[in-house]
Design a protein around this nucleic acid. Sequence first.
DNA 1: GTCTATAAGGGGATAGAC
DNA 2: GTCTATCCCCTTATAGAC
Lengths: 206, 206
Amino acid sequence: MARKSGSSGEKTAIAVREAAIRLIAQHGFAAVSMRQIAREVGVQAGALYLYTPDKQSLLFDILKSHMEDLLSSWQDEAPGSDMAPEARLERFVRFHIRYHISRQDRVFISYMELRNLSPDNFVEIERLRRLYEDVLGEILSDGAAKGVFVMEDIRVTTMAMIAMLTGVSTWFREGGRLGPDDIAAHYISMSLRLAGAHVPMLAVAE
Amino acid sequence: MARKSGSSGEKTAIAVREAAIRLIAQHGFAAVSMRQIAREVGVQAGALYLYTPDKQSLLFDILKSHMEDLLSSWQDEAPGSDMAPEARLERFVRFHIRYHISRQDRVFISYMELRNLSPDNFVEIERLRRLYEDVLGEILSDGAAKGVFVMEDIRVTTMAMIAMLTGVSTWFREGGRLGPDDIAAHYISMSLRLAGAHVPMLAVAE
DNA sequence: GTCTATAAGGGGATAGAC
DNA sequence: GTCTATCCCCTTATAGAC
């Protein structure tokens, strides 16, 4: 975006995004003004328009790059479809939980602010979200076909599991009773159980 | 609120609430103006202030009466704690799914608009929400104590199950492939499985 | 790249007529 | 119980100086 290497434009561009993400996660897109974002960044409101054509594009860019990053991060560590369904599901759940815990703000926004997207932008984000849901749907279908997962309804199970997994971002707090890896482990065994896999209990506490 | 029996005040008061719920669910609290609500009701903006002291109270009243109605509806059909945990869980899940399907707008708002409550109002709504979560937590704890539910972590399972169940309100659409009762049945067996109960498969489709 | 100034409009809320 | 008119403030976005 910025061409002069010594300029602070690059840094400002990043600062604008980060500030927007933080403020929108906290107060909601419609409740946050461009002036608030500018104050957080330390520039005047007018300067923001060097980095975004308008407020709507700012939201869209945040959501779009979040979804793209989510999908490409998964591609990077996705197991081959020749792997056992249980192992694939475990990999997916661990990835999902870690990703959602480490990027709580972005995740939160991308679920809460869909209503504030323009119709065209909404369609595009929904397309990307559907691609991600299909990753899980395909793993569950594969497991059902191979007889290692037993579900009454694959589509409902997919939606239920996605909601269950993503919910972690609403209650997880840094420094709580459980760390990210403990939580991921719990969600892995809950997911396997939800999919109707035979899952040995590793440890029963409480 | 209105004292004259022939007046249209009572009707208007209800219309204001319904319009507010519909618009807020669609666009978000911060994005909806008092003028928009008035237009939907068919009155002028000033008239709204006969029914609410301000916009914040309008939101708070919607969320508070939703939570109170949710809790008292549950009280009305809650089974005694002498019932078997599996049966109690089944009752809870069926109630939750039906309630959330039949009041999608209210449920949606009460999850999405927490950020737009004033700090005091937020505390009150959170208190009510926690009461409701505890209903499920208590059922799961009871089942664990009696050895019919087997979970690695009761608190995490409670949060996961609530998220899974409430998620139905984000994807359910009237006239879809499955009716409310089919969906409730699926969520019941998924919940039992999540709780680690022995659950017979009734029917495996797809 | 950033600032100041400003245009043009919408926001919540109130006063007073009817 | 409702309307009209209005106050005052904040909003997004742009123009032009530096």
